[in-house]
Amino acid sequence: MKLRLLLTAVTVGAAAFVLSGCGTEAHRIDTSSNQGLTTVDDINFKDWQIAGEKCVKTMLDSGVLKRKDDRKTVIMISTVKNSTNEHVNTRLLTDRIRLAILRSGQAVTTTAVSGSGPEDNASRQVRELSNDKMFNKSTVVKQGTAIAPDVSLAGEIVQQKTKSGRSYESYFFIHMTLTDLKTGLAVWEDNVEIAKQAKKPWFGW
């Protein structure tokens, strides 16, 4: 009788331990490690990192940003079209690329103009101050001084989802282009493929 009671207590205790011990406390992870979560339907932060690094490397290696004159190439960040089934913020990719380009010293980016309007409207706003009596006109930035972009960075992200039996996968295709705004020709193109797969468990809660 006592043995049965003991066995029951151990079984209930073990079940309680298994059920309650599944969670972990919130903790920071190293963004350069592989500790981040991987989900099939989303582009996770590691995917953005991989895509950004690949694009930056091939763009800088191609030499398209180097100019014959002393001036640095001015890049306009145009639109990265989201053609996926998920709501994604494409700045996670473009900001990474623009920062790496800036650090390379080969080019600078403009914030006065971008695919979805100016990223920083201040360049336009300060020029409008010349009509404002409050400001000393000689200190107001003059018209015609902003530098127009030479090239524009654009792209598209496409997703294809497939299911077969218990397995399901997502394939993301990220295509980036750099267009010479003078000629309209693409001077650099690259793509990054991300494929992720998972299998629905056979048994579970």
């Binding site: 218990r166 468990p201 579970g204 809660w205």
Partner: peptide, 9 residues
Amino acid sequence: DSRATVNVR
């Protein structure tokens, strides 16, 4: 849809 084929619930 993502529940295990055989699940307790």
